[in-house]
Nucleic acid binder design. Structure first.
Lengths: 212, 212
DNA sequence: GTCTATATCCTGATAGAC
DNA sequence: GTCTATCAGGATATAGAC
């Protein structure tokens, strides 16, 4: 049954998400969530029994969002070069709009406890096979079409690809003071980033003349 | 002046580092640090005035360790292919021995506050120019020797390279349940990882016939 | 230098009036 | 459904005896 106050519930969820993303589990306080959501602290416990339940709900949403943002960035049915290019465009667009998402997920993983594991397995049930298989499959098709070299283990390429994209958003706070003359937050740099990841990775897979 | 009890201080620092890495700032409790270090809780405040000071000291050590582990993985004076290969060997060895280090740093960055910024700038003063310049320089030399193509912005390659290495250790808890048939913790997979990163990235930079 | 006991504060959660 | 007041537990930090 859809409640009328689903609206308020949804509003609390959105605010709580922001606070949890900013502060993490231990750092986020129910009082701050209540204040920023413009509701009473007791209301949080009325709608969501505990901090734990509120957090878990949000964690699941975000994990799923992250996995889907990878899957949704694939546009099959093109040449491999086009698919790679489109993926870089779409995925960077998603990351640009959610720059703190990878950091939040990384933090949750670093706590490493039961919760992260439980949530991951829960999320994978809703998504399973989709995100990984869609990508692996695309690589196998490109290989069958003779566009790229045979891959021992396609997962290795996915790790390199996703890592090349995500790491920039994770490390930006370190890298920025290392190279003060570069504006890592400019659109121009991100455009260049997309172009360069393509350059770096494409020729590693492209069919070469003198391949054994 | 070097104190006699520097030994105990050092011991506390090592234990505290483990706890902070495991639990983060908010999650780590002084009581647990004291217990695991086998000392009284009051002693922590005797040696280090506050939790804040203890944490900051450790944060600086770890940031510096991370930056230096990148710089130390470079062995100049080889061909570019050899330098890349050696870097991958050394850096993966360091990460294998400190698999939680990237996660800890990522978490600290995600808190995003003054502290991270302050510590980063402090650490960069001790390291500045070394880690970034040593790598950029190597790329420029390889370019001058005609081994690799001209690079618009060498930093872009560094981001792709470091990201390809580090992301695996960050994302392993997510990726493992996605591909249950693969053992991501095996030495064999990490060996393959080194080999494949080389394959993925080397041919993106290697001088090509039909360039541009 | 070391330890016990305690002060002070903060947090999640709930009871109970409206 | 909403709000105020409050409980119970746990955290950092310190005082003070030895």
């Amino acid at each position: 049954m859809v409640e009328i106050n689903t609206q308020k519930e949804e509003q609390i969820l959105q605010i709580a998400m922001q606070v949890f993303v900013e502060k993490g589990w231990h750092g986020a306080k129910m009082q701050e969530i209540a204040d920023r959501a413009g509701v009473n602290k007791a209301m949080l416990h009325y709608y969501f029994r505990s901090k734990e339940r509120l957090y878990t709900a949000i964690l699941e949403m975000l994990f799923l969002k992250f996995l889907n943002s990878i899957a949704d960035s694939f546009t099959p049915g093109q040449t491999f070069a086009e698919t790679l290019q489109l993926f870089l465009d779409h995925f960077h667009e998603k990351l640009k709009n959610n720059p703190t998402l990878p950091l939040f997920i990384a933090r949750e993983l670093s706590e490493g406890g039961d919760r992260a594991n439980r949530v991951i397995r829960q999320v994978l049930k809703q998504n399973e096979l989709r995100t990984p298989q869609i990508m692996i499959n695309e690589l196998k098709l490109a290989q069958a079409r003779g566009e790229i070299i045979p891959l021992e283990e396609p997962v290795q390429f996915l790790l390199t690809l996703i890592g090349s994209c995500v790491y920039f958003f994770l490390a930006r706070p370190i890298v920025q003071p290392l190279f003060p003359e570069i504006d890592f937050h400019s659109d121009a740099f991100i455009e260049q980033r997309k172009k360069m990841i393509f350059e770096h990775l494409y020729y590693g897979l492209k069919k070469r003349e003198n391949y054994p």
